[in-house]
Simulated assay, not measured.
Amino acid sequence: MTDPPLDGPADAPEPYRTVAGPGRTRFEVRGSEFLGLVRPVERRERAEAFVASVRAEHPDATHVVPAYRVRVREAPLREYAADDGEPSGSAGDPALNVLAQRDLENVAGAVVRHYGGTNLGVGGLARAYGRAVADAVEDAGVVTERPHVTVRATVDYDDSGTVRSTIEGSGVEFDAEYAERVQFTVRVPVAERAALLDALRSATSGRVEIDEP
């Protein structure tokens, strides 16, 4: 599949289904051990970082098969899967199909296989990889989320109390870092982003510096 040129949170505010948190499962098929893992992600980079971390944690794995579906700016959805050395179409596609059939977005999965000495055939592999993702999703649970973006608001200390009160009043998640200046990292629903930024600029008479990474 072809990557879009840029990546980031979706612009559309429609709710979507995703996993509620990390999920995992482990089982054996004819001597081969399969470990299925899923987790929610909001960017392609985080999906790829998750897969990389699974590879690093299982350096002796025979295969680590990734599958993820993430919203991006240039397209409604970015989908990716790979067979990682398994026969073509026997691993990545079955894993990705589980996420698609359940209409899950902003979710990354990885299936770790330790070969047990017996070939499973294309059909057996497809069933095993699909089961690994399906069971991990069941373990995680499914929720409905609204698309979010991350915004950083930086101000001098004189404005920090006003900005903090404005953010707290909006009911969104945020962290504050107090250094030479004060930086607030805010996770805000896409649909509420414009109103929050307007409120911050109004509260500081335009002195707040806004960065949207």
Rank of each mutant, 00 (worst) to 15 (best):
T154S: 13
P22I: 11
E173K: 14
E74R: 15
D198L: 10
G109Q: 07
P13H: 00
E138P: 10
D60T: 14
A81G: 10
V54H: 05
E105V: 08
E180I: 15
A52P: 12
A194I: 06
A100T: 14
T25E: 03
E79C: 15
P147E: 02
A134Y: 04
R44P: 00
L99H: 01
Y80T: 06
E14M: 08
E57A: 08
L200T: 03
E14T: 10
A108T: 08
D3G: 00
E145C: 15
R127T: 12
S88L: 01
G109P: 08
R30L: 09
G92F: 04
H63Y: 01
G21D: 01
H58T: 08
S53E: 15
R113I: 06
R17F: 15
P66Y: 08
L125H: 00
D11Y: 15
V51F: 09
R26M: 04
G117P: 05
L104W: 12
I210D: 11
A191L: 14
G121S: 13
D11T: 15
T185G: 12
D198C: 11
V151Q: 01
D3T: 13
V112I: 11
A91D: 02
V155M: 02
L200Y: 01
P66T: 13
A176V: 09
A126F: 00
E168H: 06
N119V: 05
D7Q: 15
T204P: 04
E209L: 09
A176I: 10
A203N: 04
A153P: 06
R43M: 14
E86M: 07
E42H: 08
S160Q: 02
G36I: 03
V72P: 12
A195V: 07
G23V: 02
V149R: 04
E33S: 06
V190P: 12
R113S: 11
T18Q: 07
P40S: 12
R26Y: 04
Y68H: 13
P189Y: 07
R201F: 03
L197S: 14
G171L: 03
V163E: 03
D84M: 14
N97H: 14
P5D: 02
G123E: 05
V190L: 10
E105F: 14
A47C: 12
A153K: 07
R55V: 00
R181L: 10
Y178E: 04
V98F: 02
V64L: 04
P22D: 01
H114R: 01
H58R: 10
V29M: 10
A91Y: 01
G89I: 01
L37V: 06
N97R: 06
T25P: 04
V142A: 05
V19E: 01
R26G: 03
F174Y: 10
E145P: 10
E86A: 05
V190R: 09
G36K: 01
D83M: 00
A136P: 05
R30F: 11
A110E: 06
A100C: 06
G124P: 02
R73N: 15
T162S: 13
A195Q: 13
R152N: 06
P66L: 02
I210H: 09
S170Y: 08
F27C: 09
T150Y: 05
D211F: 01
V172T: 05
A176D: 06
P22V: 09
R46S: 13
G31V: 07
A82Q: 02
